[in-house]
Design a binder for these strands. Structure first.
Lengths: 180, 180
DNA sequence: CGATTTTTTGAATCATATCAACGTACGTGG
DNA sequence: CCACGTACGTTGATATGATTCAAAAAATCG
């Protein structure tokens, strides 16, 4: 992204690189969300817990992805998601308020942020359509294409809870796949 | 939204109010997408057709909603969605290119557009989570809450294809509901 | 190595899809 | 204004795919 020197400098003053440990939780549901994370190494996931205690993974984030509870951030409500580190990771840690103020300080960020949001919308539209029209096995294949190296970080039940099936069902899908 | 007079004037020069008839298709898959629509009256839907010929409704748009094939617009690819009028409607018709140029001509639009995109992302995140954690009946209840007056425009199979169930299943859900 | 977590497997059950038939509503043309 | 055809909704029977619960096997970690 093309940014002025001044804008870059400002970015560095509000960004804080942080090492985070596997298993740690960066955002917890019910809390006020102050941070957005940019992943430079490792893997994180955002998930919600439903009324039966079942987890549902909304998003994985690997190198160069943003992750947070965007529902909370964009609505101002409390977090409904949890952000968990699936491996020791490095993230750049932005205060959401400061990240927002950037737009008034440096209008050149607007186009950058708009592009991010547009690509986010595209990926969400595609995810919804895939969920509706593909079988569980097809969704798993697509997942492996889209996240080719993610299995080093994730447990199968993380992936299952992203695909919308139980871990047992995913296990059976994997078995029939190796038999082919 | 607070906009300067100049900006408002410009908006009117690129917007074109159009009456569209029930059953007409404003965007067809495979076509190049040149338009984004703002609905001022009536109801439209965006749907895709899968490899078995089954329709999946990605979005309904009623008064004051935007609708288009945002996948196509934001990626520059050809349309994969169809936009269909479910009733005689009135839309304001924007050329996508001109709508984009607004941001360079009138930077004050950026914040407005950013807010639109953020709310769009929120609704998509919520939709994905609801699809994963709610039963078909719960999703139908929520749908009726979110679109209280839409049933005057839609066929049941439109709603079924939005909820991710067959029209027969939705019919059975409706029957058990009236018995309660 | 032992303890714990994760994955796999089996059997029973459940929710939804499918296929087919029927009933109903709607609108058009005679 | 009625008759007919088409589109839509409902219902029943059956099939299918996924879930659940339980237990065994495998992998991981200290």
């Amino acid at each position: 992204m093309p940014l002025s020197e001044e804008a870059k400098k400002h970015l560095f003053t509000i960004a804080k690189e942080t090492k985070v440990l596997k298993g740690s939780t960066l955002i917890r549901e019910g809390q006020y969300v102050k941070k957005t994370f940019f992943v430079t190494d490792g893997c994180l996931r955002a998930y919600s817990v439903d009324k039966n205690g079942k987890e549902h993974t909304l998003q994985f984030a690997v190198k160069n992805w943003w992750i947070s509870d965007f529902i909370a951030i964009y609505t101002g409500e409390l977090a409904t998601l949890n952000i968990e580190c699936l491996s020791d990771s490095t993230v750049i840690d932005f205060n959401t308020q400061e990240l927002n103020d950037i737009h008034t300080l440096f209008p050149e960020f607007e186009a950058f942020q708009r592009n991010n949001l547009e690509r986010h919308v595209v990926s969400l539209h595609k995810r919804i359509l895939n969920q509706m029209q593909l079988t569980a096995e097809e969704r798993y294949d697509l997942f492996l294409e889209q996240y080719p190296d993610i299995e080093q970080y994730t447990r199968n039940y993380h992936i299952a809870s992203y695909l919308g099936v139980t871990q047992q069902s995913l296990s059976r899908i994997r078995v029939t796949k190796t038999k082919k």
